[in-house]
Structures are given as C-alpha cells and as structure tokens.
C-alpha cells in the first residue's frame, strides 16, 4: 500500500512577470517504509511539490490541478470552494507535524529565535497529543537524547543562537519526529552542513527510519547523498518527472539524457581517471514560458524535431523504471544514448 499518492499535480505561482509554472503535472507514490529520493536542480520544482503536499505554499502559489492522497485520504488542495478550503485547512492542521512531518533545509531560519528550544520541541506534542506539560517535557527531553544532543536538561532552556548549525539541524529533526510521523519529508536536510556533520545527520535519519518504519522523502541535488540513502529515485527537470526508478536502475542504467548528463558531471572520487567532467551545456528552462515539448530539449545533444513540439509519453523498462524521452520511442530506434 502506498502512504502518499500524488496524481497529476499542477502548481503555479503568480508573479509580476506572469505565471510561473513550477510543477507541471507530476504523479508519483511513496510506499510504506521506503526512502524516496527526489533529485533536480534549483528551480526544477522539487521543493514546490512537497510544499504543495503539505499545504504550505507561499501566498502567491496555488495548486491548480491534481489529487493528493495520504493513506487513501483525499488531501487535494485544488478546486476548493470557501467551505471546502476551511475543512481542508482543518484536516491539514491535524496531519502536519503529526502524521506528515517536514525537515527543512535551512536550520538558521526555521527555528524561532525568541523561543527557547524546549518550548519549540514541546509545541507539536502539546498541540497534537493533548498531554500535560510535564509529560510533553519528558518526551521532548527523550527526543533530544535520541538525536544525540549532549546534556539535554541544560540545553532545554537555551535559545537557537546558542546552538551550532549541526545541533540546530538535529533539533529540527527532533521536532519533526515529535509525534511519530508516518511520513518524513526531508528538504535538503544536509545542504547547509559540513560533510562530517552531514554523515552524522544522515546516519540519524537512517536509524530513525529503520527503527520506526516511517517512510522518508529525501529532496536533494547531491547524488552522493541519494546513492547512500534512497531505495527509489525520481529525477525532476523543468517541473516534470523525466525519469523514475530504483537506485540501481537510475545509477547503472539511466535512460534519460538529463540523468545520464547529471551522472557524467559529478566526479566520483573513487575513480582514478583524471578525465574531464562532461558538463551539460546551457541552463535550465524559464518556467514563465515553459517549452511545449520536452523541457530538456535546449540542452540535449540528441534533441530531435519532435522533442520541441510534444512532451514524450512515459516508456516503461521494468515495474519500477520509467522514463519520458522520445529516444525511447519505437521510431527513434537509430538514435543511441
């Protein structure tokens, strides 16, 4: 059974320059106890997808189409009238922090600088579990222990500025875990951290996922992090999912030219070769005026006439592996990737 199912999600932002089509019709699901990685460059729509799921879009953003199901329960924010929006907000308030929790990218801005760490940790427990303050404090201290914060008793009454970046990220993880969520969405959880601290945090997320059997969505642009953490991977580009597969399918048998390009332009430090990196020329498409066809067409060395005119359908290679690229169409047999 899938824990989260997203069907044909469309999210737009209205800006002074026009409508930015950040997410353009994507569908995917997250299975129970799986770690799903979402990879893409900045502006590919990976964070916006998750904010849409959480109902946390900025004021100028809205979900214009699509369905979102959490454990078969409909939580789609599109096409709602006033009354339905109210019920939706109520429903989301119950879910957020309780069943679905998010670990945010920037530990410096997520925490409230004028509230003590302990208070911020107790907040979700008090709201969702309606327990006494004493019990909430006990649970908060346990959480601090769990995420490896030394001497939690004295740390409990400190403010965020007294914590280092890695410690703050641990607090954010602790807050996310406070109510034993079934789904943890981690939005670039280690981008702001050094590698040695990153290793600590990744190990922690892995351990918690294994112990509690929660599902995790890891949003990142670091292919190394994806390779070490994820069971299944989505590759996003220009607001669309261009390839989807298990970790080994994506890394060893990539099908989409963008995925292939992405893998070629990261240096694997374990290889001895000194050969030059193969960069992807050009830059990502402007989502104010997204291309009609494949979003990658302007940077793709295999681009054909059809790529400019129509978005390719998905081609399945296995139960788990699918790719959207015209090269996999039966008429494009001669082309070699």
């Amino acid at each position: 059974m899938s824990i989260l199912k997203v069907e044909n999600l469309v999210t737009n932002f209205s800006t002074d320059q026009g409508t930015v089509q950040a997410v353009r019709g994507i569908s995917f699901e997250v299975k129970q106890q799986e770690v799903l990685g979402i990879v893409g460059e900045s502006g590919s729509g990976k964070s916006v997808t998750m904010f849409s799921v959480m109902g946390l879009l900025a004021d100028n953003g809205r979900v214009d189409d699509g369905k979102i199901y959490f454990e078969e329960q409909d939580i789609s924010p599109s096409h709602l009238d006033k009354a339905a929006r109210k019920t939706y907000e109520k429903q989301m308030q119950k879910l957020r922090g309780n069943d679905i929790a998010m670990i945010f990218q920037d530990p410096m801005t997520f925490l409230n600088p004028v509230l003590k760490i302990g208070k911020q940790l107790m907040e979700p427990i008090l709201i969702h579990d309606k327990c006494s303050k004493k019990e909430a404090k006990e649970r908060a201290l346990n959480l601090m222990n769990l995420v490896g914060i030394p001497s939690p008793q004295s740390r409990f009454n400190q403010y965020p500025h007294q914590f280092s970046g890695g410690m703050r990220q641990r607090i954010i993880i602790a807050i996310a875990l406070a109510c034993n969520p079934k789904l943890i969405i981690a939005d670039e959880p280690t981008t702001a951290l050094d590698v040695t601290i990153q290793a600590q945090v990744l190990e922690l997320i892995q351990k918690i996922q294994a112990d509690r059997g929660s599902s995790v969505i890891m949003i990142t642009h670091d292919l190394g992090v994806v390779a070490s953490m994820c069971d299944r991977i989505l590759i996003m580009y220009g607001g669309k999912i261009v390839e989807e597969g298990t970790d080994r399918e994506i890394f060893y048998k990539p099908k989409h030219p963008y995925t292939i390009g992405l893998l070629a332009c990261v240096h694997n430090p374990d290889s001895t070769s000194k050969e030059a990196l193969v960069p992807i020329p050009g830059s990502p498409p402007d989502l104010l005026n997204p291309p009609v066809g494949c979003p990658f067409v302007d940077r793709c060395e295999h681009a054909m006439l059809v790529c400019k005119q129509m978005m390719p359908d998905e081609t399945r290679f296995s139960d788990t592996h699918l790719c959207r690229c015209w090269l996999n169409h039966k008429f494009a047999k001669e082309a070699k990737v």
């Binding site: 890695g166 590698v195 601290i197 990153q198 290793a199 190394g224 080994r248 890394f251 694997n268 374990d270």
Partner: peptide, 23 residues
C-alpha cells in the same frame, strides 16, 4: 569516509567513520 559516493552499491556498503561532536 564521510564523502557520499555517487554509486549506490559502494555508498550503501561503505563504512563511514562518524566523528563524535563538532568543531
């Protein structure tokens, strides 16, 4: 050892040395 390697087979079997504490 804490550098993530972009290769799932190596990355998942790699032994990371986790440093205690921070700078």
């Amino acid at each position: 050892s804490s550098v993530p390697i972009p290769d799932p087979d190596i990355a998942k079997s790699k032994k990371r040395i986790i440093l205690e504490g921070e700078l």
